[in-house]
């Protein structure tokens, strides 16, 4: 069933905005509504074309009015985010994530027109620890529940979504658990992290990192909206990078920090407004996380176009990250040494 009226939350951010733009370009969809607390940046707004922007706070019951008066039949909840707006934004982010979802779901439950709900969740709900299996499937849970930050928000959001699904069994609910996004255009904690000239890591740990190209993420969200694919799906690119390997591929220098000094260093980066890592993201840098995407390929019918490695390389070249040591120099040095060796023969 192709939806008639789509409401997208979080349109002033990359995913929500570009998703609204994709729906606006689709002639089968009659109306596209974008909701956010602040207007999207101008270039994003231009892309969104005929999509209408509604400046509303989903934490406010007003959202209910928007949904019922516009006869919204499909809601894409893409505003749950891991990136706080500023150094003090974490409380606001939590409110937005959790209270916002509650209000939005309450509004959806009241409106009989709503037929479909697509929720952008995260694989952070699986947590990250040394006692976890190497690869998470959809039926697994975290070993210890994330106690703070984005991961906890996402767990709570998913709980409310499940509750909504029970109360409105007629609505198709698709929950998408994304890995971290990467790409030349998207701006996340991780893209800022890898752009640092010297990248701090935790000494003695090397996380397995699975990434998803932001274009693939958009395609998955679009597919979930245009088709009826209820369920919970892991979404991530194929393959895995080690954190140290990713840093090398980006041509950065790795600065191992002893675990005891990690909070201090994290605090420095936060106050310098370089990268703002929450404790659960710090844990992610210790252990990493890999998810199984068999269901995505088989049941959901989507295979990501970029593997983790390709997505990362696309990010590196798209951002124009200059490696500190030129790879051509290394190759030249290799050839030079071999030539010298051949002369000694």
């Amino acid at each position: 069933m192709t939806p008639k009226v789509v409401l997208v939350t979080g349109v002033s951010r990359f995913l929500g905005g570009h998703l609204a733009a994709r729906f606006a370009a689709n002639p089968d969809i009659e109306r596209v509504l974008g909701v956010d607390t602040e207007p999207p940046p101008r270039d994003l707004l231009r892309r969104m074309g005929r999509a209408e922007f509604v400046r509303a706070d989903i934490r406010n019951p007003l959202i209910s009015k928007v949904i019922s008066t516009a006869n919204v039949d499909t809601v894409v909840h893409a505003s749950v985010t891991a990136n706080p707006a500023g150094p003090t934004g974490r409380t606001a982010m939590k409110e937005m994530n959790v209270i916002g979802t509650m209000q939005l779901l309450a509004a959806c439950q009241k409106s009989p027109k709503v037929q479909k709900l697509v929720v952008k969740s995260t694989s952070a709900v699986y947590g990250s620890s040394s006692r976890d299996p190497a690869v998470f499937t959809e039926d697994m849970g975290p070993k210890d529940l994330p106690s703070s930050g984005y991961a906890k928000d996402a767990v709570e959001v998913e709980g409310y979504v499940r509750g909504f699904g029970r109360r409105r069994p007629d609505v198709n609910v698709t929950t998408l658990r994304f890995t971290n996004f990467i790409g030349p255009r998207i701006d996340t904690v991780l893209t800022r992290y890898f752009a640092l000239p010297v990248v701090p890591t935790v000494l003695g740990y090397d996380a397995r990192v699975q990434l998803l190209h932001s274009e693939d993420a958009l395609a998955v969200l679009e597919r979930a909206t245009l088709h009826d694919l209820p369920g919970v799906f892991n979404v991530g690119g194929d393959g895995v990078l080690l954190l140290s390997q990713a840093i090398r591929r980006a041509g950065r220098l790795n600065l191992p920090v002893p675990s005891a000094a990690v909070p201090t260093v994290g605090g420095f980066f936060r106050s310098a407004r370089l990268v703002d890592f929450s404790p659960d993201q710090m844990r992610f840098l210790n252990w990493g996380r890999v998810i199984d995407t068999t269901l995505l390929k088989k049941d959901f019918g989507f295979t990501p176009r970029w593997t983790t490695q390709q997505a990362f390389d696309d990010y590196v070249s798209g951002r124009g990250l200059k490696p500190l040591i030129d790879p051509e120099m290394i190759e030249a040095a290799e050839r030079g040494i071999l030539d010298a060796a051949a002369r000694f023969r």
């Binding site: 190497a134 699975q210 390997q245 090398r248 591929r249 490695q309 290394i330």
Partner: peptide
């Protein structure tokens, strides 16, 4: 050279 460039493959278990 492979190690410096990060040009190697690891599997999902690391």
């Amino acid at each position: 050279r492979r190690r410096i460039a990060g040009d190697y493959q690891i599997d999902e278990f690391g």
